[in-house]
Design a protein around this nucleic acid. Structure first.
Lengths: 220, 220
DNA sequence: AAATCAAATATCATACACGATATATAATAT
DNA sequence: ATATTATATATCGTGTATGATATTTGATTT
């Protein structure tokens, strides 16, 4: 009945996750040269699985390979963030259009409830906790829409874009405006509950536009 | 003065291009188990650069990795093509919106001229030549718009999607309706020449929708 | 059927050769 | 002396060869 789903351990996968985490959190800072042999010694593995995981990270834009010079943690420019937000906005419009007729009222109301809980939890204003709550809040809305959009490739692509945005957020210790995010999320969900797909699309575009503006205003 | 620009090649890059070509042209058919050691012997290289290039191809959806079972040429389903066309349509809308104010009248008129030339060349009806013309025609419009869209990430993503579509076309020896494609391209360009961006966007969406419908009608 | 065992293969480690690049040092020119 | 150029050395990236371990697969046995 239940296939023995042994969690077989592939070192390359583990290293992929570990290194991505280090890059997202800037433990490995942008631009840094990656010394593969040194990394291998530190982690107690050989260079082969590390090389392989870095190739994967390069395909996703987290690592830059320069032939015969080495692998480097990818740089992040404001131009990159601008490009990524443009793409993400366009793709999430597709996601919400496709998800709108599929998503259940129950799931939408659950998202609203989670929004309120996020509010209370973040009231304590613990920076660490707050960031965590915001991750969950974003996963609640954006993740759910992607799930219901019934487009696996879309889900993968947007998830990867969001990771790259988070990398930028982490860099600047950006203080997210929780109240604004919450209000915009609520607006999107309410439009969906009212079967107003176009309203939801507009609200989503506005939400992502605002998020981008708040981000660059904070930094620039 | 002129730095000796030796075209020193990286084996992994060469293998990446070669294997992608083989997959796109179905020399390596979908679903096939990739025997890395056998490939290595045939190509006269070791298995490591092959593994690395396959990891890259896996990130782009051309190869599927199943842990401890091996690497396989990725399967292609109609569902995949559907998803990809949805995404591509959404992204090319962004591309044309961004390119519209940047692209020059001269470049647009050049595209129109190339369209006419494509017509004449394909009149000879050589199947090989015709496919080549169509590649160039698509590169002319879609490639140019992506170039002028000033969004590098967008360009990369759409290019990758188009490659995956071509893989599907190659599989079914699909006979493209040149006249239809040509008319739709002309419509898009004419809207752009008239500074009618929204008209161009609508024409682009319609064009991609029609391309998809012609494709699946031919197969299904 | 279920369990056991053997063969095949994927994964990973180690050692090494070679070439490209970066850095330091020395030589030359201004 | 300073700046520039050339040379030597060390470092590191790329690729090969070989072997060890882990997992899957298929055959054999119970």
């Amino acid at each position: 009945m239940s296939k023995k789903q042994l969690n077989r351990y592939v070192l390359t996968d583990e290293l992929y996750a570990l290194l991505k985490q280090q890059i997202l959190s800037h433990v490995m800072p942008a631009g840094e040269k990656i010394n593969i042999d040194k990394l291998a010694r530190e982690l107690g593995v050989s260079n082969i699985p590390i090389r392989e995981s870095l190739f994967r990270l390069a395909s996703e834009g987290f690592v830059t390979i320069i032939p015969f010079k080495g692998m480097f943690v990818a740089e992040m420019s404001l131009k990159d963030i601008n490009e990524i937000f443009e793409i993400r906005t366009q793709l999430e419009e597709l996601a919400i259009r496709k998800a709108a007729p599929r998503i259940t009222k129950e799931r939408l109301q659950q998202i609203l409830q989670e929004l309120e809980r996020a509010n209370e939890a973040a009231a304590e204003e613990n920076s660490e906790e707050k960031e965590n709550e915001i991750r969950q809040m974003n996963e609640g809305l954006h993740g759910t829409l992607l799930l219901y959009a019934d487009n696996f490739n879309l889900q993968q692509m947007v998830s990867s874009l969001i990771e790259r945005i988070h990398r930028y957020l982490n860099l600047h210790h950006y203080k997210i405006d929780l109240e604004a995010e919450k209000a915009e999320h609520r607006s999107i969900v309410n439009h969906l509950l009212a079967y107003n797909t176009e309203g939801a699309v507009t609200a989503m575009r506005q939400h992502l536009h605002n998020s981008y503006e708040r981000l660059v205003a904070n930094f620039n």
